[in-house]
Every structure is written in structure tokens, then in C-alpha cells.
Write a protein that binds this DNA or RNA. Structure first.
Lengths: 224, 224
DNA sequence: AGTAAAACTGTACGGTGTAAAGTACAATGC
DNA sequence: GCATTGTACTTTACACCGTACAGTTTTACT
């Protein structure tokens, strides 16, 4: 008879989810670098090839990681008007992409979306339709909002690391190498705006998002 | 005395520019994959390490490639109002990113911009300032426009390859795997809009760009 | 002709994703 | 109770990657 107090000798096996969680955590720590199969496996107390028992190949693993990011995004709930809902999910999505900067670089090569991604898209479209958009209008709105959100994330990622006052040092250093006479407007903007003490590029996000939402509201009726 | 009719036996040496042009051409052909140093060198009739005589490391080469893409973008000329200028450069930029899809994925990791990039940014900011934007307003406008353009490029890249009617086949196939009862709005949009014969996602670009430009015009006065 | 710099090569190292085959163990059917 | 099957994982190996380091050649300039 088997001993009930004796669980499987292999203490507990891997699973898609456990692998994905570790992969996301490692990518976050590595400031945007997706871990190699060997490093990921190592963290999980296993050899690299063990991962291939749970994922067909690395691409499938990356798909799963992106889907996990989408799962973190706050979905619109039915009780909000579409403007508020889109503002909230925009902010939430941007925060997720800031927490997981590696995801932005992955988006443009992912082709088959996971369940959380589909759920996200479906809910957003549903929210827009409920808000009075036609299907065509909802497609416009969706495309516009997501383009803005992803693009903003790209630009935020490309900034010199914003951990601390490091940013200012890096930005100043960069600007020193840019001749002011050759690029007058750029240096003016840097000196008079972007390098001013309280400036935070992140604040631009809400401004743009509001402008787009405002524009969508204005054009909503005309999209049939 | 050296013979003037006898040009260098090494027919002609590499140069940054020649390497970059070959690299861009190869990346374009490879549908978005940046070539490895060995493959690139091979195309140039040289061994991999020869590249390191012209570039400190691969990152510097990638920087150069991105700068070449910016060099292809049509710059605003002084004789256009800012709206027209921004529409033109937006379209031009998107086309460049479509020609060179690999550039989009590179953007979020590039940190030091090349000359063409700086020239581009400077000219755009100059155009906005000339159009009546304050520095703060120009910063908002610039951030918004570029976010939208980059983000749109991401989404366009992520589409199943749009070479031909292949697109429809791929999209239909994808939609077959999405249960309609679980994602009703998504499937509705696909069926009634995105999969209709004449639909081209690229057409969304101008709609969003116009909406943003319109919004910028409306808010311009309020940004001091 | 001699020298010094520039352009390029050979070799090597540690890293990558993953194919193929092998091993250890649990569960199952008889 | 024992053979069979399936699951989870390991070992080994391969082709490819970026690049450090130390040559070697080719060119340019006295």
C-alpha cells in the first residue's frame, strides 16, 4: 500500500502558470530583458529542456507572458460611462506596461493572443458599443486608444532610466552632446521645459489620453 | 613612385554608411529580423569582426540603422501650416516604419539618437512653435503625435502578414479559434467590420491622426 | 624603402534556442 | 504483483550568436 503521507517524490511539478510567473518576475528584475531558457529553468530548480514539456517553444512562453500582463489590466465595468472607463483602463494599461517594460517590445511580434488578451479586447469593445459607438466607430476608437497607449509606453521606455535623479543627470549629459546652434528648438525645449526640476514625462500621458477621448466623443456621432 | 592608375588592391574599404545600408536592406528582406554580424559581414564580403572596426558594438550599429530610418522621413518645410506639416510627416513616418518594421522594435531600446533623428525632432518642434504652440504645448503635441505614430506601427506590425489575401485567410483562421459566445463583441467586430472585403487596417491611421491634430488645434491656446 | 596606421582575419569563449534520446517514477490494467 | 504506459525531467549535442584578443595584411606617408 502506498503511504498517504508520502506525496510524490518529485515534490511538485512545474506548470505553465508557475513557469510564466517566474519568467515575468525575472524579466521585471532584469529591467526589460526576457530571461533565457537556462536562467529561467535554473530559477525553477530544473534544467532548460524541462520547459519544453510545458511550452512548445520560447515563442509560446512569450505569448503567455504577454497574456499575463493583459490579465493585470483593469477591465471596464458596466457602471461607468465610456469616457471614464477608457481613462481608467488606459491608466491601468500604461501602469502594467511600466511595471513590465519588456512586454512593449514583445507586442509587435505576438500573433496569437491569449485568453486574458481576448477578454480585454472584448470588454473594451463592448464598453464602447454600450457607450453609443457604432461598430465602425468602436474600431476607430479602439485603434486610436491602443496606438496611443502602446506608443507612449515605447517612448517612456526609451527614456534614460527614470529610477531617480539619475534621469536628470543622464538627460543633461545627453544634451551637452547636442550642439545648441544646430538644434535650437530641441535644446530650447530641453532647457526650458523637459529639464526643469518638477518635470515628469509620465504626466504627458493623461493629457494626451484626455485629448483623444474628447476627440472621440466629438466624432462619435459621425461614424456610421 | 606609386602608380596613379593602380587603385587600392582592396577594391574599396567598408564604411559606416555601406555597412548600415546593407544592414537595413537585409533587415527589410528578412521581414523584420536584424541580421547577425556574421550574415551581415558575409554580404559585405568580409568576416564578422571587420564590422567592429566601424562600430564599437552591435548596439551602435542598431543606433545607426534607426537613424537611417529617421533620415527617410519627410521633414516639415516652413511653407506649410503646422496641421498640414504634421499630417505629412506623420504619413511619411508611418510609411518608413512600414518599410522597416524592425525599426519599431528597436525604438524602445535606443538611447542615443543620431543626427537625422535629432534633426527630425528639432524640425518638428520648430514647426509647432512657428505654428503658435508654446514650448509646453509643443511638448504635448510632439509626445502625442509620436506616441500615436509608434503605437500604430506596433499594431500594424502585429497583424498577420498583410502581403495579400493571406491576411483574410489568417484572420479568418484566427477567428475560428475564438469562441463567439465568450467574446461576442470581438467576433461581431471581426465579422461585421474587420473581415469585410474592402477593409484595410492601414486606413485607420489617417483617421486617428486627423483627430489628434484637430484636438491639438483646439487645445493649443490653453497650453501656456 | 621603411614605418606606422588602418582594415581586416583567425581563433576562441561563453552565451542562446532547441532537437533527440535517455532516465526515473507514478498510475493503470491485468 | 507485475508489465505497460505516460509524465516529468535530464543529458548531450548542434548550430548560431555577440565579441575579446591577438595576429596579418594592405595602404598611406615619409
Amino acid at each position: 500500500m502506498t503511504e498517504p503521507a508520502d506525496p510524490p517524490v518529485r515534490r511538485d511539478p512545474l506548470s505553465r502558470e508557475k513557469v510564466l510567473l517566474a519568467a515575468v518576475a525575472m524579466a521585471d528584475e532584469a529591467k526589460g530583458e526576457v530571461p533565457s531558457t537556462r536562467k529561467l529553468a535554473n530559477r525553477l530548480g530544473v534544467r532548460a529542456m524541462a520547459l519544453y514539456h510545458h511550452f512548445k517553444n520560447k515563442d509560446e512562453l512569450l505569448d503567455g507572458m504577454v497574456d499575463l500582463v493583459f490579465a493585470e489590466v483593469e477591465l471596464p465595468t458596466g457602471d461607468l460611462d465610456w469616457q471614464t472607463a477608457m481613462r481608467r483602463r488606459g491608466a491601468s494599461m500604461r501602469e502594467a506596461l511600466k511595471r513590465h517594460p519588456w512586454a512593449v517590445g514583445l507586442m509587435d511580434s505576438r500573433v496569437d493572443p491569449g485568453g486574458a488578451t481576448l477578454r480585454h479586447h472584448d470588454t473594451v469593445i463592448g464598453c464602447l458599443l454600450a457607450g453609443g459607438f457604432t461598430i465602425v466607430g468602436a474600431a476607430h476608437a479602439f485603434s486610436m486608444l491602443d496606438s496611443y497607449i502602446y506608443g507612449f509606453a515605447i517612448q517612456e521606455n526609451a527614456l534614460p532610466i527614470s529610477d531617480e535623479g539619475d534621469f536628470e543627470a543622464a538627460a543633461v549629459g545627453m544634451m551637452e552632446t547636442v550642439p545648441a546652434d544646430e538644434f535650437p528648438h530641441l535644446t530650447a525645449m530641453a532647457a526650458e521645459h523637459a529639464l526643469k526640476p518638477g518635470y515628469d514625462y509620465g504626466d504627458e500621458f493623461a493629457i494626451g489620453l484626455d485629448l483623444i477621448i474628447d476627440g472621440l466623443d466629438r466624432h462619435r456621432e459621425s461614424w456610421r
